[in-house]
């Protein structure tokens, strides 16, 4: 009885819905990022003339081979990297303003957990900084750990968990903030195929419940097509957008969708969009 009740909890309200005050659509115009060359040569053009529009609540993947600037693009949106030219507008505000309003949730490539804190206290940490009162923090930590299936591991330390579990702690930590925008930088790249597929389904479920804007960086075409509304294909040297592929597969998507014709033709379409690889 109790269990059934738990399963039916509606997280959408608690996770913060995006129809609130802030419109979280992202508009990127003429964005370029250049890095100075270490040996004093010409600067490296990491991103060249990027124009992209992301609608509120959209799940967008950035795919491309290494060196195509997909992580740089994500970092620029997150205000971890400054653009050389061009602008990014998030609901009319700059990335810096959004960051200072603490509206970003970032999931890093390796989970970046604080190894001296337990799982619960790791998830709790950003909320402590945001000054959220303790009862509320405790409530949200419990909720998020249930959501990512780690409720029974709250008292453990990160090194006692597997890589997949650590990554889920990172996701729980990012979601606990109720961010308007969730930025994910190759979050599943180090995981085995089974864990990865499970987390794909989890992430889809979380997204459909919370309707956050999610930007997801990956080098796996399959992953991008499976998860996204829109796949942005980037090509390297210099990093640029070579195609934007809309994914109109029905949702919710099960793993069996990977065997369908539509899925595979979209994968081929994305693969054929790469330039100069």
């Amino acid at each position: 009885m109790l269990r059934a009740k738990k399963m039916n909890v509606d997280y959408s309200k608690d996770l913060g819905s995006d129809t609130e005050e802030l419109k979280t659509g992202i508009i990127i115009e003429n964005l370029s990022v250049r890095f100075p060359d270490k040996n004093g040569g010409d600067p490296v053009e990491a991103l060249q003339n990027i124009n992209l529009e992301i609608k509120p609540g959209e799940f967008v993947s950035l795919v491309g081979p290494s060196g195509c600037g997909k992580t740089t693009l994500l970092r620029t949106i997150a205000d971890l990297q400054q653009p050389t030219t061009g602008t990014i507008s998030i609901g009319g505000l700059t990335p810096r303003e959004i960051r200072l309003q603490q509206k970003f949730g970032i999931v890093f490539q390796n989970p970046v957990l604080y190894e001296w804190r337990t799982v619960r206290r790791n998830v709790c940490m950003p909320m402590e900084i945001m000054g959220i009162p303790k009862p509320e923090r405790t409530r949200r930590v419990t909720q998020m750990l249930e959501l990512v299936g780690l409720y029974n591991f709250g008292k453990m330390h990160p090194h006692e968990l597997s890589g997949g579990m650590q990554q889920r702690v990172g996701i729980a930590r990012a979601l606990a903030l109720r961010p308007k925008i969730l930025l994910m930088d190759e979050p599943f790249s180090a995981l085995d195929e089974f864990t990865k597929e499970k987390l794909h389904l989890d992430l889809q479920r979380i997204w459909s419940k919370t309707k956050k804007t999610i930007i997801f960086v990956t080098h796996s075409i399959q992953e991008a097509v499976f998860l996204s509304d829109k796949v942005v294909v980037l090509s390297p040297h210099p990093g640029r957008i070579s195609a934007v592929v809309d994914i109109n597969l029905p949702r919710p998507r099960g793993l069996e969708i990977k065997d369908t014709m539509e899925f595979n033709s979209l994968v081929s379409k994305v693969r054929n969009s790469f330039e100069g690889v």
């Binding site: 971890l80 970003f104 970032i106 890093f108 970046v112 604080y114 001296w116 402590e128």
Partner: peptide
């Protein structure tokens, strides 16, 4: 690690919090 600093930066942590929650325990 830089990534741990970036996590703090991304949630606009104050210097006091960075020391208290990250640098001193680490």
């Amino acid at each position: 690690e830089k990534a741990k600093h970036e996590l703090m930066y991304s949630i606009a942590a104050k210097k006091k919090d960075i020391y208290k929650k990250l640098l001193i325990p680490a």
